[in-house]
Design a protein around this nucleic acid. Structure first.
Lengths: 350, 350
DNA sequence: GTGAAAGCGCTAACAA
DNA sequence: TTGTTAGCGCTTTCAC
């Protein structure tokens, strides 16, 4: 039905018109130095005249390399991952690689099909953030096929990765909240099975709470990783012995939580302190500005790509851990015990 | 140096092992219905055993189609474009297409090289946002080569596009500001040569101001499209006859402007109203919440991709304009003439 | 310095 | 229903 090729001229056509062999045309584009200047100029002129550019499909097939990398991320709506793309692409471009990109929406099934598509396209390597690095079967598939890959954000001892120390970072955040006087801290996240980062952060938070002899950190599971609903938050606010601080597993969730707390007539941080994780730039512009852990998304992407290229070009496989930084915003403040004793249930307009 | 292929088995190897011809193996994967069930199962079993999946490079070369689309956007750091990617990918996935993605950082030179890379990869089509659709040479290159492409965000009569009516939207925003009592409105943006959207918005703003007999809209050009600096904003605040409202060509810029105005000791909107454009979701969480025009990024991406696939699969070339919506936030309010008369120069701490 | 020839993996005629 | 053959566009020995 649909007619095929437009009017693409191939290397043999250029060769014919230039009165040389296809091999020479190929050399003109790939190793211009080894061909006589005169021949080169002539071939180039003919090529130019036809708007000819070598078809990479041909060379990829022949060479066994597509000079293309895959990037598999949960979603670009989260600025953290958008930054990751930017970092990775910047590094890839530097070495002449293109990027094929796909979003998995935190769905392991989509992860698997996405990776298979990338494999079929014969990409030279893949950077990916999976739901759970330990249980992911796709990573083993990748490994078994001898494909090059690097995890971004996921921490792993079994697979190469570029990440931050989620456990330590979450621990630091709890220590920070404790220094503000909070002793009853809750942790909010989506289903842990869908994010091993969230799981590490919870573990780090719990460990620190224990070390500092705070109350045990309760864990509330939201339906989604990046947002929540009024009923859930109301339930937390009305809980007996409600926490004085909510540590959210990421900034998108924290943003959503703060907004709902306000809707319910409570004030942040006066009635409830809230902290996030990721350090999205918009956090600074919010009101109150977000207390969070800044994980360097751009650098994670850049580093993951760098590690991947090391693997591809130098057969070196290694991981790297990047530094994080605590951002002391306005969404979490000193706990004022007096102002809190009065209400047991919730705040205003309920 | 670097050894080539890992251990990829090809279709002929599978054919040999299954005791059939390569053509049959091909049919098993592409038109399973026309091959005998028994043969099919057997071939499938052999393929499975070797983890064989057809190499798309081979079929792409043969078929003249890569089932891959290019997406060329200024940057994913702007949530507007991240949403656009999500929309486009969702639509592409639905038809079995992959996406090769690249960011141009508002640089026409990068636009050109990026598109050439995509052409070399033999993509079936390209979705792109260029700096300026009218002056872009790359669009003519695309057209001349007979490549399929659709613009996203850029409006054009010469090229297929998916966009909003920037002129009308900006006009509506000025009308809104006027209804709040503002008569001296300034427009802020990056260099117009780098964004035809900004240019249309300015034109729309000016037209409306004229129609409503407001003062002429002054245009301040920032160095970047997505942020500004203290000196520039101070200059605006200190200008004689300073405006009472600043209309920024996008939300990132508006966010940056508000933050700097506050740093300079002025209040938004008490001392200065600020409006943006785009409707990024974080605008709602900011303080004050952003008054802006919401352009549907996800839908623009989705529609652009849909139009592109129509072109590729049905040889239909058309454009589509999507609806926008004014968001009446808290960053722009009723002008109070009294509170403004006193200070001529600026606000506090100067 | 350049050319001839083979083949990367695949599929569509066409033949059987 | 299945096999044979040719060729998509390219690069790379190996000759010359």
């Amino acid at each position: 039905m649909v007619e095929r090729r437009i009017n693409r001229v191939s290397i043999v056509e250029i060769a014919r018109q230039a009165g040389v062999s296809p091999a020479t045309v190929s050399r003109v584009f790939n190793r211009p130095d080894i061909v006589l200047a005169e021949t080169r100029e002539h071939v180039l002129a003919v090529a130019q005249r036809h708007g000819f550019r070598p078809n990479r499909l041909g060379s990829s097939l022949r060479l066994g390399s597509t000079k293309t990398l895959g990037l598999v991320l949960p979603t670009l709506s989260n600025p953290v991952f958008a930054d990751c793309f930017e970092g990775a692409e910047q590094r890839a471009r530097q070495s002449g690689y293109s990027i094929m990109m796909t979003a998995t929406h935190y769905d392991p099934a989509l992860e698997a099909t996405a990776v298979h598509r990338l494999i079929d396209h014969q990409l030279d390597g893949v950077i990916l953030t999976v739901a759970n690095a330990r249980t992911s079967t796709i990573l083993n598939t990748l490994k078994a096929r001898g494909m090059h890959y690097v995890l971004a954000y996921n921490e792993s001892t079994a697979h190469p990765c570029a990440s931050v120390d989620n456990y330590a970072a979450a621990s630091d955040m709890v220590a920070h909240l404790a220094s503000l006087g909070h002793r009853r801290i809750a942790f909010l996240s989506g289903p842990l099975s869908l994010s091993d980062r969230a799981a590490s952060r919870l573990a780090g938070a719990r460990h620190c709470a224990q070390r500092l002899e705070l109350e045990q950190v309760r864990h509330y599971v939201m339906l989604s990783h990046t947002g929540t609903d009024t009923a859930t938050i109301r339930q937390i606010l009305e809980a007996p012995n409600r926490p004085s601080a909510l540590f959210c597993s990421n900034d998108l969730l924290a943003t959503s939580v703060i907004s709902i707390i306000k809707e319910l007539g409570c004030a942040v941080p006066a009635d409830m302190s809230v902290a996030g994780f990721d350090g999205i730039r918009y956090g600074a512009f919010m009101s109150p500005s977000l207390t969070t852990v800044q994980a360097p998304g751009y650098e994670i992407g850049h580093t993951a790509c760098h590690l991947l290229l090391e693997q591809i070009e130098q057969r070196v496989t290694r991981s790297e851990q990047l530094p994080y930084r605590l951002i002391d915003g306005a969404s979490a403040t000193l706990l004022n015990p007096q102002s809190r004793k009065p209400h047991h249930a919730a705040c205003a307009n309920q």
